[in-house]
Each structure stands twice: as structure tokens, then as C-alpha cells.
Design a protein around this nucleic acid. Structure first.
Lengths: 148, 148
DNA sequence: ATGATATAATAGTCAAAGAAAGTCAAAGTT
DNA sequence: AACTTTGACTTTCTTTGACTATTATATCAT
């Protein structure tokens, strides 16, 4: 598994117990034997506002990175999410969303997987490359609208 | 025997033990002393949904190609369907299939509906009108081999 | 004590380098 | 003609590092 995925998982594990995770960037980088900015990469690709994570941090002595998730209930989450899904949805970001949907019980694992497959680049191979992310976004939005 | 056939056989051998094979394109190319794109050729000509395979991949560091197999024999019904889904799948025909799937307990109603919405013309609005049926066909085939 | 300044300890940014896989068309085989 | 092999070029995602920005603490002058 990729380093970034490991770090993501490590952080996500905290959320099983907690609403909020506070970490020291350099410590974490140390634990995973990487440069500190790798942590920023993971956060900016996986702990995104669209999924209800918000991140605050402080530099200097005693600095920290705090990741919180807004604890929406299921129906609030659903009504919010459509607006937040941007016009462009990459395969990778879709994955991040789908994991979240499973967490919120919007889709079960099996269905999420079907959606993942249906909207994959492979399935969309015949769609113009530059339109794929647009189409994916439309599809996901339609799915969500329909669930409501 | 042709190189492509050798590679095909090599991959198929894994399936004797396993339902899923994950490989590194460049490693495999190396083992067979060929260019990496040869692997793509083998996959795209032999590991296709029509034959019960579902393929997914990822680029970048830690990338991979994952091939999953569905035992089409397990269900004559399904393999028939895949054969029947031609290159072109209209919205209407999709509906027919989906109803069948529900009847045969392959998908539950809710999931079938999600698929219906995801593959609808509305979701595919940004896809060239003349390509929609092609895309729909690819999507459904991938879904089918994936769910079994 | 007080305020000013330096120093150390953090975190952030951004672009380049790296590590895969994908595409496509030309050339080669059968 | 159909299928296979090859390779140059593209795209996607990750890792790294040099440089910047911010904050806390220590030190120094008054």
C-alpha cells in the first residue's frame, strides 16, 4: 500500500474513537519516515472540506494540526453534499466520497462498489478524456438526488 | 506460442488459486522481456468483461493493475446477458435488464434504481449523444462482472 | 518590570522529480 | 486482413526538498 494511504488510514483510525484529531506534523512525518510536507499532501487530498473535514493548525513552538469533522446527521449530510461535489470529479476523489457515503449509511458497501465500477475510467473509456470528470460528477449527483 | 498467449496463460494461472490478481505492469513486462504496453494489449484483448473479467488500475507511485474474475459458468443467465448486451445499450433496454435483475435477485430494487439513474441519459448529458449507448453498455458490463 | 529583538520550533507552499500506468499509431507477423 | 509487437509520448498520482511564514520563548537594553 502507498505511503499516503497508510497515513490516511492512520489518521482515520483516530476518528473511530474521536471527533477530532490533533497531531504534530513533524512527529507524524517521523513515524512514517517521510518529509513533513507529505502530511500536507495527505490532508489536502483526503481530508477535504467537501467531506466535512475542516483543518486548523498553528505554527511555531507547540504547533499542531487539528482535523475535525463536522458531525452532521445523515439527512443534513445528504442535503449538503450535492452542492459540495464540484463540477469535476476524478476517479480518486470519487473513491474518497464513496467511502464517506458508506460511513454515513447512504450506500452500503456493495452498492458503493457498483457505483465505483460504473463510474470508473474504465467504464467511461469511450467518453472523451476531458469530459470524464464532468460526467462522473453528474452521475454521482443524480444518484444522490435520487436517494433522497 | 505467441508472447501474448504466454502472458495470458501466466495471468490465468493465478486464477487457479485466486479470484483476483494484482500485478505491476512494469514488473510483468520485465519478466516477459517486452514493452509495458504489451501488457495492456493482452489485457484489452483477453481480460474483457465478455469473458468475465473486471479490470481496474491506478497510475502513479504504488500503481497497479488488478484483474478480478467472475465465474461466468456459475450463472448461465449472467453470461447470456453479457453476450446479449451488445455494444449499444439504450436507456429503455437497460430498464428491461434491470427489471430482470431484480426479478432474479441479482440486484435489489434500490440498487437497481441507483444504477438506472447513474446510467440514465440525464446523467450522461455531457456525453455525446451518439456515444451514450456505447458508454452505457460498457458500464453495465463492468457492473455485471463485478457483482457476481 | 517592560518592551524590543533574536532564536528556535513549528507548519505551509509550490514546483520539480519520480513512479507508475495509458494511448495510439507504426511496424512486423501470420 | 487480422493480429501482435514496439516505442514515443501522455496522464495521473506521489514523494521530496528548498524556501517561506508564523508563533513561542529566550535574551537584552532601558
Amino acid at each position: 500500500m502507498k505511503l499516503s494511504d497508510l497515513i490516511e488510514q492512520y489518521i482515520l483510525d483516530f476518528f473511530k474513537e474521536n471527533e477530532m484529531v490533533e497531531l504534530k506534523r513533524s512527529e507524524l512525518a517521523n513515524k512514517f519516515n517521510c518529509v513533513p510536507s507529505q502530511i500536507n499532501y495527505v490532508i489536502s487530498t483526503r481530508f477535504i472540506p467537501e467531506l466535512g473535514f475542516y483543518v486548523e493548525s498553528r505554527r511555531g513552538g507547540g504547533g499542531y494540526i487539528k482535523i475535525c469533522r463536522t458531525n452532521l446527521n445523515r439527512s443534513d449530510y445528504i442535503s449538503d453534499i450535492i452542492d459540495k461535489i464540484s463540477q469535476n470529479l476524478s476517479q480518486t476523489t470519487l473513491d474518497v466520497y464513496l467511502n464517506d457515503f458508506v460511513r454515513y449509511n447512504i450506500l452500503n458497501k456493495k452498492t458503493a462498489n457498483i457505483v465505483r465500477v460504473a463510474l470508473s475510467d474504465k467504464s467511461l473509456a469511450k467518453v472523451d478524456k476531458y469530459d470524464r470528470d464532468l460526467v462522473r460528477s453528474d452521475m454521482l449527483k443524480n444518484i444522490i438526488v435520487n436517494i433522497i
